[in-house]
Simulated scan of single mutants.
Amino acid sequence: MIAYALYFAYFCFGSALLMNLWKVATAPDVVDRILALDTMVINSIALLILYGLTLGTEIFFEAAMIIAMLGFVSTVAYARFILRGNIIE
């Protein structure tokens, strides 16, 4: 039964990732693209965690934590670039 739930979750997060990719390609504004990229990071973290659950290993959880930290830093850097025009003062 858990296998069916995992397949359903793979389908949901995979389709959400594709929809975010479409939004990145067709968004009219830079802010919309940044939000779509941030959501893509969250969906890829969810897919990594699901894959780790499927295989039963902990290494994918650590990779998800690293990607979460990088996603947060990149979102903050994009936001600072939009607000101020530079990232490092």
Rank of each mutant, 00 (worst) to 15 (best):
residue 19 M to Y: 10
residue 43 N to S: 12
residue 13 F to G: 12
residue 22 W to Q: 12
residue 33 R to Y: 03
residue 8 F to H: 12
residue 46 A to H: 02
residue 9 A to K: 05
residue 41 V to W: 00
residue 10 Y to R: 08
residue 48 L to N: 02
residue 22 W to I: 10
residue 20 N to I: 10
residue 38 D to M: 09
residue 42 I to E: 07
residue 20 N to A: 15
residue 51 Y to A: 10
residue 9 A to Y: 03
residue 18 L to V: 12
residue 8 F to D: 12
residue 23 K to Y: 12
residue 18 L to Y: 05
residue 40 M to P: 00
residue 51 Y to P: 00
residue 53 L to I: 02
residue 24 V to H: 00
residue 25 A to N: 08
residue 21 L to E: 01
residue 31 V to H: 08
residue 8 F to W: 12
residue 57 T to G: 05
residue 14 G to H: 03
residue 16 A to P: 03
residue 22 W to K: 13
residue 26 T to D: 04
residue 9 A to R: 04
residue 10 Y to W: 13
residue 28 P to L: 10
residue 37 L to M: 08
residue 46 A to W: 02
residue 26 T to W: 12
residue 55 L to D: 00
residue 13 F to K: 07
residue 10 Y to M: 13
residue 33 R to S: 10
residue 21 L to K: 02
residue 57 T to D: 07
residue 36 A to S: 04
residue 49 I to L: 15
residue 52 G to C: 04
residue 29 D to A: 15
residue 15 S to H: 04
residue 24 V to A: 11
residue 35 L to F: 10
residue 39 T to N: 13
residue 56 G to M: 10
residue 13 F to V: 12
residue 28 P to F: 04
residue 20 N to V: 08
residue 38 D to Y: 05
residue 32 D to Y: 13
residue 55 L to A: 06
residue 41 V to A: 13
residue 57 T to C: 06
residue 50 L to F: 05
residue 17 L to Y: 04
residue 26 T to F: 08
residue 17 L to W: 04
residue 24 V to G: 03
residue 44 S to I: 08
residue 26 T to A: 13
residue 24 V to R: 02
residue 42 I to T: 08
residue 55 L to S: 06
residue 23 K to W: 06
residue 16 A to E: 04
residue 28 P to A: 14
residue 32 D to M: 13
residue 30 V to Y: 13
residue 19 M to C: 11
residue 40 M to E: 01
residue 52 G to D: 01
residue 11 F to L: 15
residue 47 L to D: 00
residue 14 G to A: 09
residue 16 A to I: 14
residue 17 L to C: 09
residue 33 R to K: 15
residue 20 N to G: 14
residue 13 F to S: 12
residue 27 A to E: 07
residue 44 S to A: 14
residue 55 L to M: 09
residue 42 I to A: 15
residue 29 D to G: 14
residue 25 A to Q: 09
residue 18 L to I: 14
residue 51 Y to D: 01
residue 28 P to R: 14
residue 49 I to V: 15
residue 25 A to T: 04
residue 10 Y to P: 02
residue 45 I to A: 00
residue 51 Y to G: 03
residue 45 I to C: 01
residue 52 G to H: 05
residue 34 I to A: 06
residue 38 D to S: 11
residue 21 L to M: 09
residue 15 S to I: 15
residue 8 F to V: 15
residue 47 L to V: 04
residue 56 G to K: 09
residue 41 V to I: 06
residue 55 L to T: 04
residue 55 L to Y: 02
residue 59 I to D: 07
residue 39 T to K: 11
residue 50 L to W: 01
residue 32 D to R: 15
residue 38 D to K: 03
residue 27 A to G: 13
residue 19 M to S: 09
residue 38 D to V: 07
residue 33 R to A: 14
residue 48 L to F: 03
residue 19 M to F: 14
residue 55 L to G: 01
residue 11 F to T: 13
residue 21 L to S: 06
residue 40 M to K: 01
residue 36 A to D: 00
residue 31 V to Q: 09
residue 10 Y to Q: 10
residue 27 A to V: 07
residue 23 K to I: 11
residue 27 A to S: 15
residue 25 A to S: 11
residue 47 L to N: 00
residue 46 A to T: 02
residue 24 V to F: 06
residue 58 E to R: 08
residue 47 L to W: 00
residue 38 D to H: 11
residue 56 G to P: 06
residue 37 L to R: 05
residue 42 I to W: 07
residue 52 G to Y: 00
residue 15 S to Y: 11
residue 59 I to N: 13
